[in-house]
Amino acid sequence: MIQYYYLGSIALIAIGMYIVIAKRNLIKIILGLDIMDTGVNLLFISIGYVKNATAPIENVPGPYVDPIPQALVLTAIVIGVSVMALALSIAIGIYKKTGTLELDEILGVKK
C-alpha cells in the first residue's frame, strides 16, 4: 500500500515534469522546476517521518523523527531559491536580447 504523502510529492514531481516538457515559456519552465524542487523536498521529509515521534530537539524525551533528511532539505531550499533567481536573470537577459520569452520564437522554430 503506497502512502498518500509519497503520492502527493510524486504528483508534484510529475506536474513539474509536465510543465518542463509541454510549456514553451521560459518563466513557466522555471516555475515548473520550482514545483519539482518542492516535490522532492516533501518526499525527503516524508521518508524521514516516524509515527508518534517529536521533532529532533532534545528538550523533551521520547522517540524522534529522522534528522538527516531535514538537515539536507534545510540547505536545499535556500539553494533552490538562489538557483531560481540565477535562472530568472538568465531569462531576463534572453528577453533583452530577443524581445520574447517563447522558446519557439527564440530558436526560430516554424509552427
Binding site: 510524486i10 504528483a11 514531481i13 510529475a14 515534469m17 509536465y18 516538457i21 509515527k51
Partner: peptide, 19 residues
C-alpha cells in the same frame, strides 16, 4: 509522459515504509 513518470515513481515507492 508525466503519467508514466508518476506510475513508475509510485511503483518504486510501494515498498518504502512510511512512519
Amino acid at each position: 509522459l508525466a503519467i508514466l513518470i508518476f506510475i513508475v515513481f509510485a511503483l518504486a515507492f510501494v515498498k518504502i515504509p512510511f512512519g
